[in-house]
Design a protein around this nucleic acid. Structure first.
Lengths: 383, 383
DNA sequence: CTCCATTAGTTCAAACCTTAAACTAATTGC
DNA sequence: GCAATTAGTTTAAGGTTTGAACTAATGGAG
């Protein structure tokens, strides 16, 4: 059962949040807010003017119009507050600060080899966050929280990293708790695929049901449904990498057999075919090389099979692919799209889009604060 | 983004719905409602008394207490309104009326062989609904709507039956629209697994994230997450039967290869092992018969593999099995539970329950109106 | 250049709902 | 019979949305 707004005050907060989130998606005028949110013009005026006088929102000019008064566009004040991000990457640990739009303001990083224990990681990240804040002469109180981005299975309710081998010093350490303790800040741990999907959800307005998949040495995934991140029993993200594509197939470190990750991750590909340069193979495939094409067909069969399962279970409109397979993606994309639309039951009702989007490291840093920012805008507070 | 309550009136409706849904789950007192819903005692009094004077709710006695005034239990008036249900079963088409608790008041049915065309089905069901209403001297205006239960993939937005072969005369017919036209009533088409999950969601209070699976000649499934039915892009239910358990495996009529349904439905079992009496095999397995045990191991591997994928993707707490495998289920259940907990990634965070629950035809009829009833209680109207 | 039609945004009293506080009602144990 | 306790009711107060009437801004026609 949904939890409804209860009293008159909570309505105000809800409407503030609705409006602020609309503005956050893209600059809009009061009139548009009134139309989209279903609130009266009077209410929109009251609330937006309050937001403006608090310094959270500002007017950024007018829209063109053919007749009548021009609409005054409202935008959030991106530097009204800021957020800190920690990125537990495969090769290094990064720290950054972003504004409320997720744009990186400043950054730092150190190679993963420099860390021997969880405490070292904790000390480095906490100190660096404070250093960056100082360097920009920001106020600690204006930091809305620290978002941690990590690949692989996590236990986000406990704030614990479970899986990726290069972070074994963090396994089963109360990482979030310790950072919260040392900083006194709001701390959130999230899967990097979930963070990516959050950001995409903000941008892709029309797309309401999709899965974001990141494939590199492992496979990460997250699902957006009805315009919201899908959360399971304990906030565990959709683990596409550990979907079983071959019952009784190759054994996976996770304990299961036949996991997708054992077939189509970059490492699995190397193990299966013996080559290391995926990009080179793709180039050859474009030139018609039969062996290279067979590699793409192999990927299509296994990845397609896993995606069909996901599409059928979640009833998805689209799949967005990130990571290494995004190199010259037209060929593989076309094969996957054909495979999925031919083989999924939902295709009988609606088509399924397959989109490739190059994962820039830049974006990955900005994404790290996506969950903290979302949290911030969802529980709107006075002043 | 969530759609929030907007104005002061909508708050009232929301609170009415919250309270009515609480009462509907199980009889409660005003004091409990106040505590659980987070509403003040005054509001609860106001709203419940309004509901009572409208005839939607009644007091049904008091609870025992050790000290202080006894709590007065409130229950919904089950026959305040009624709903009609149409069940498109494998062997017959059933029509029934249920009260607001989903209890069947009256029923009728005809063998599927009697129908040659969609129009015949439409005429029969519509006429029978009116006949049953007349027979019980009920008022047509008190019927909250007609729920249609159907196995297999549906397009619930268009209200069209897509799949099961025995209903081929209904394929791509605007079934819901025509029935809505002829009756002027609210009509809803739902997958039978979804309806079952709705009912279970109402009953199983603690369980918030589970999948209901019905296995007989096909496989149907539905997911409840965060205490609500999961809905994908177009309300398509989670199609566990068409999850791919063997990439490039057995061809399925749906177009895909290696669908779970091709391995562990009753028909697939018959095809694979050549036997027809599943119950007999189970009996033999309990006596230690090695061949019979190998059948259960086969089911465990394939069904388990599919369930692991679903559990990993949806992050589920539990799987509830219905249908033919519910015969003496302890043995198979134990094997499945062990398999799933050993092989799923989420098991690292929380255990996964496997529950067998015999599917009674009786219940299937009552379930047919579950969606209409849910809809009714979610959009509460005055008087 | 003025006037008008049109759209955007503002002001304010009215309507409505929840709620805290103070109340009554019912029940047990001493 | 009385105190203690819990359940349920009444009522005035407080806060929010809103419709209606308003002002503001803009383009085009005459």
């Amino acid at each position: 059962m949904k939890s409804y707004a209860k009293n008159v005050q909570s309505i105000k907060n809800d409407n503030r949040a609705t409006i602020l989130n609309l503005i956050r998606k893209a600059p809009v005028s009061r009139a548009e807010i009134s139309a989209v949110a279903g609130l009266s013009k009077s209410s929109v005026t009251m609330i937006t003017n309050a937001l403006i006088s608090e310094g959270q929102v500002r007017e950024i000019g007018t829209e063109e119009s053919t007749v009548g008064r021009k609409r005054i566009l409202l935008d959030i004040v991106a530097d009204y507050r800021f957020a800190a991000g920690i990125i537990l990457h495969r090769r290094d640990i990064k720290v950054c600060l972003t504004d409320l739009k997720g744009e990186v303001i400043t950054r730092a990083s150190t190679a993963i080899e420099n860390f021997r224990s969880a405490d070292e990681v904790i000390d480095y990240t906490v100190n660096t966050v404070f250093e960056l804040i100082d360097r920009l002469s920001l106020k600690k109180e204006d930091c809305i929280g620290i978002g941690i981005s990590c690949p692989g299975p996590l236990d986000i309710t406990r704030g614990v990293v479970l899986s990726p081998p290069h972070l074994d010093m963090l396994h089963n350490v109360a990482f979030c708790d310790k950072i919260r303790e040392k900083t006194g800040m709001n701390v959130s741990l999230e899967n990097n695929a979930v963070l990516l999907a959050m950001r995409e959800n903000l941008i892709r307005d029309k797309m309401q049901n999709f899965m974001s998949v990141i494939i590199s040495h492992g496979i990460g995934s997250a699902v957006v449904t009805a315009g919201e991140i899908y959360r399971g029993a304990l906030g565990f993200s959709g683990e596409l990498g550990h979907i079983s594509v071959v019952a009784d197939g190759l054994r996976c470190p996770c304990g299961n057999c036949g996991c997708l990750e054992r077939y189509v991750s970059l490492s699995a590909l190397k193990e299966h075919f013996g080559f290391t340069d995926y990009k080179q193979k793709v180039d050859m495939a474009y030139e018609g090389d039969e062996e290279a094409l067979s590699v793409l067909r192999y990927i299509t069969t296994y990845l397609g099979s896993g995606l069909v399962s996901a599409v059928n279970l979640f009833d998805l409109d689209a799949v967005i692919l990130h990571g290494d397979y995004s190199y010259r993606p037209e060929l593989l994309n076309g094969m996957l799209k054909k495979y999925i639309n031919k083989n999924s039951v939902v295709a009988a009702v609606h088509g399924v889009e397959v989109i490739s989007s190059p994962e820039r490291n830049d974006r990955a840093e900005g994404n790290s604060t996506a969950a903290i920012i979302e949290q911030y805008f969802d529980q709107i507070l006075e002043g």
